[in-house]
């Protein structure tokens, strides 16, 4: 196992957000985390990268507890891809991607770092934007820049926080295809928090469905994305069709909320 999350609990000001979460992630695996708003998807992602520190439980990376790692050491192994930019002051795409070398370099950046940046810009096909300001790019282009930055970290695990929520359908597919290919080719493991159940079904090897901070169901897309699970977790009546072996979800209507055990 590449990554193990063991009995992790996290609360914001004593409101529990994650309760006894256990996850295992294999090498070259793409794990999708789905669930309604507030289910704890993003919190889980942030705990794995020590952006938030869980109050209980352990997270093991290659059998080492990440709590015992220094931040820089963890940054060489785990890459985080945010949803959107919060850059206020100007930064070129090149410099943004170069930031990914921070865990590896001292004060000066070397030819090797520059080379890495160029390699990743080319891999993601964003060379033409290299000298543009990151804030001038569209959401889809920004996602590619963040993927490039995370890859220049040379991590083993990629964490994706709602990677598609700001994108049009073309960019959704493009960005997800790139990620899928990278996970395959570079033998990375990836965990993505994602809202779109159909994208999750299509791109994730395995899916975890969360509800109120707990894992409600886990397994391959077919066994997790069932009408019953969707009804109980989301409170939505849905039709699940078979689309080339992958479930395709058509939401129909919200269920009336009387004694619905999905949202205690």
């Amino acid at each position: 196992m590449k990554l193990k999350v063991k009995e992790v609990e996290f609360s914001y000001a004593s409101v529990p957000v994650l309760k006894d979460v256990c996850i295992e992630l294999a090498e070259s695996e793409m794990l999708g985390v789905v669930g309604p708003n507030g289910a704890g998807k993003s919190t889980l992602i942030r705990c794995i990268d020590q952006i938030l520190v869980p109050q209980k439980g352990n997270i093991l990376l290659d059998n080492r507890d990440i709590k015992e790692m220094r931040l820089m050491e963890l940054a060489k192994k785990v890459g985080y891809i945010p949803q959107s930019t919060s850059q206020i002051f100007p930064a070129t795409v090149f410099d943004t991607v170069l930031m990914g070398r921070r865990p590896h370099l001292g004060w000066r950046s070397s030819e090797k770092d520059t080379g890495k940046v160029l390699e990743m810009l080319q891999l993601l096909n964003i060379e033409e934007f290299a000298m543009r300001d990151i804030n001038e790019l569209s959401g889809g282009q920004q996602q590619k820049v963040f993927i490039a930055r995370a890859l220049t970290q040379e991590p083993d695990v990629l964490l994706l926080d709602e990677p598609t929520s700001n994108l049009d359908i073309r960019h959704q597919l493009e960005v997800m295809d790139i990620k899928k290919n990278i996970v395959r080719e570079k033998e990375l493991s990836a965990i993505m928090a994602i809202h779109d159940l159909n994208l999750a079904s299509r791109y994730a090897d395995r899916i975890i469905m969360m509800n109120s901070g707990e894992i409600f169901s886990a397994g391959d897309p077919v066994s997790v994305l069932t009408p019953d699970n969707i009804k109980r977790v989301y409170g939505v009546e849905a039709e699940v069709n078979n689309n080339n072996g992958k479930p395709y979800i058509v939401p129909i209507r919200p269920v009336r909320q009387n004694g619905n055990d999905g949202r205690s």
Binding site: L71, G79, P82, R102, Q153
Partner: peptide, 8 residues
């Protein structure tokens, strides 16, 4: 968040 994930 990004800064933390880059080890700062």
């Amino acid at each position: 968040e990004t800064a933390k994930s880059l080890g700062v």
